[in-house]
Simulated assay, not measured.
Amino acid sequence: MAIKGLGTASTTALLISECQNGMTDPEHSTNDLLSGQVCKRGTIEKIEALAAVLRARGVPVFHATVQGLPGFRGWGANSPLTASIRKRPLVEGHISTAVHPGITVAGEDVVVARHRGLTAFHGTELEYLLRNMGVQSLVVTGVSLNIALPGSIIEAVNRGFSVVVPSDCVSGATDETHDFVLRHMLPLLSTVATSESIIAELGA
């Protein structure tokens, strides 16, 4: 059965959200709860496997990262979360902003760096790049189910994109958040599937 909202290889893109060292690698983590969940679930390995297949089918791969300008210039501290991020080393050039070494950044991939805000589309070129590449459907992976993923998915839906979420390629900071968002929030905004079913449809 076709996955609702999933386009063809030529109209779909893979979005990997915030799979950077500071969020997902315990060695450089600025969020130990989240990086622990990522390791527990094997999220990085599953995203890498999905990306390899989709990339081979011609699906463009986007890596959304958060990296403040030096000194966090222009970064608001207008919420507890944005204020806490200003206390982390998540600035341009720091190892915490580099994509996790377990995820390939191929030459044709696009890295979209965000200098402010909490979601992938905010203040970035992501929407314009997707539209100019003829993308209509997004496969959204990465972290976290607490804020960045549901926020980015809402933004994608508001912009007219359809979204598919592979449930085995995302992580929240706690078991409770992970399960609640996957079961009760994302099905209202997207199709929740598995990476295996997405590969079967796009990677054949």
Rank of each mutant, 00 (worst) to 15 (best):
V164S: 05
L69S: 13
C39A: 15
T11F: 03
D32W: 05
H100W: 08
L69R: 15
A120R: 01
A173P: 00
P101F: 08
V139E: 03
G107P: 00
T97H: 06
A83L: 13
L186R: 08
G22K: 05
V157P: 03
D168C: 09
G68Y: 08
L189Y: 15
L15A: 08
G74N: 15
A156Q: 02
A9K: 14
G117H: 13
V61D: 01
N132W: 00
S17C: 14
A51T: 02
G117I: 12
F161Q: 08
W75R: 09
A200K: 14
H115K: 15
V164Q: 02
N78A: 08
P70K: 12
L202A: 05
S167F: 00
G117M: 11
G142W: 05
T174Y: 03
R159F: 05
M23I: 08
E127T: 04
L69H: 12
D175T: 12
G71L: 08
R57T: 04
A193H: 04
I147G: 01
P70Q: 13
L188S: 14
P60Q: 09
K46E: 11
K4Q: 11
L138R: 02
Q20H: 07
G107M: 00
E201C: 07
I198P: 02
P166M: 02
V165A: 06
G117R: 09
N31K: 03
I103P: 04
I103Y: 01
T119C: 02
T97K: 02
P26F: 07
H115E: 04
W75S: 06
A148G: 10
R131G: 04
S167Y: 00
C19A: 13
V164R: 05
A83C: 09
I147D: 06
A2M: 13
I199V: 15
V105F: 01
P89E: 09
A51S: 15
S197R: 14
F72N: 05
G68S: 13
E48N: 14
A120T: 11
T65Q: 07
L90C: 11
V112S: 08
G151V: 09
V105G: 05
L202G: 00
R114V: 07
G74S: 10
V66G: 10
M1H: 12
L54M: 10
G151S: 13
P150A: 10
S10N: 10
C169V: 06
T141I: 02
T65G: 05
N31G: 07
P26Q: 11
L188Y: 11
G74Y: 12
L186C: 02
Q20D: 06
I154A: 13
V170T: 07
M133S: 11
F161N: 10
R73S: 12
V143E: 04
H115V: 02
Q67R: 14
F161A: 04
D109Q: 09
T11G: 02
G123T: 07
S96R: 13
S197M: 01
H184W: 04
N158Y: 09
G58Y: 06
R73N: 12
V165L: 02
D109R: 12
S35P: 06
V53K: 15
R55Q: 03
E48A: 15
P26C: 10
A52T: 11
E196L: 07
M23L: 09
K40D: 08
T194I: 00
I198C: 02
R73K: 15
R159H: 10
I198G: 03
V165I: 12
F72W: 10
V181M: 08
V110R: 15
S190R: 08
C39F: 03
E108Y: 00
V111D: 06
R41F: 09
S137Q: 01
